[in-house]
Amino acid sequence: MISEKNISYISLISIFFIAIFSEYFNEPYLITLLSRIIIFSIAAIGLNLVLGFGNLISFGHAAFFGLGGYVSGILAIHAFNSELLISWPFLFNGSNNSLIIWLFTIFFCSLLALLVGVFSLRTSGVYFIMITLAFAQMLYYFAISWPSYGGEDGFSIYVRSTFFGINTMKGINFFFICFFWLLIILFITSKIVNSPFGLALRATRFNLTRVRSVGINPFRIQLLAFVLSGAITGIAGSLYVDLNRFVSPSLLSWQMSGEFIVFILIGGLGRIYGPLIGAAFFVAFEQFFGSYTEHWQIFLGIIIISTVLFAKGGIIGFMLKYQKNE
């Protein structure tokens, strides 16, 4: 029986076991790939909250991904070099502790999302798309021209942050941390979507007048969703920097924002597990075609165009429909 739930559970379980087998057969590269899939899907799950359920087409979620990455990277590099990060109101050397890094990431990404949201949600339609893009570009150019943290070249952080004494430099251990985050994020988003707040959010995508007329302020609903969304995507950025031990402005690039939208679309818009399926497909596609030609993006372009024009609903939608026809 193919159902959205089953597809989702099967994909979660298979990712988990592929990782275990990769460890057993000593394939660290595969484990890194799986961690990447998970991190990308967390980022896209964050975006999906506003895009899939609230129909807010943010074309600037790389801002949160990148900010999460930079916050984590900056904390880590200062801790590594024992360099003072701030001297007032207290001395702070940055941190190498994952929990502290995540807390900072969530705090700053929520703050940024609040700021971007307050301004962007005044507009709608194409203006919303463009103003979110503009905010992300602002950060991108700032990162490029700000020399303290590597400017255009970015910087390396050498070691991953520590998590309760686990050896995070070992690929499979870091994978487990990412996987654990994915479970938490999936749990939180499915909670949100099926809550009164989630219903109000879904209502805002269709009919703002109706939402107002039952006494709900759509702006506040959308803003709260935007903040949650930014925080989730920020966590993904933090994990991504830890995975690669490298921070660069490309985290903030508009191609990154575009790719998050692509993950959501390929998996299936407005489905909780859609981004996971989409990111997995994307990374697998990149690996497979990338091994034949460095110009694999030509085929990616064709696939995206065909998906939008002929297969709305993405992979999950397609599988569900296929079953119905049988």
């Binding site: 949100i192 809550s195 009164p196 109706r210 939402v211 039952v214 609903i221 949650l228």
Partner: peptide
């Protein structure tokens, strides 16, 4: 249900299941 949520002002509740 949406109207009820508006009336009861539970629209910031994002942890309870519908």
């Amino acid at each position: 249900l949406l109207a009820k949520i508006g009336k009861e002002k539970t629209f910031y509740n994002f942890y309870s299941s519908l």
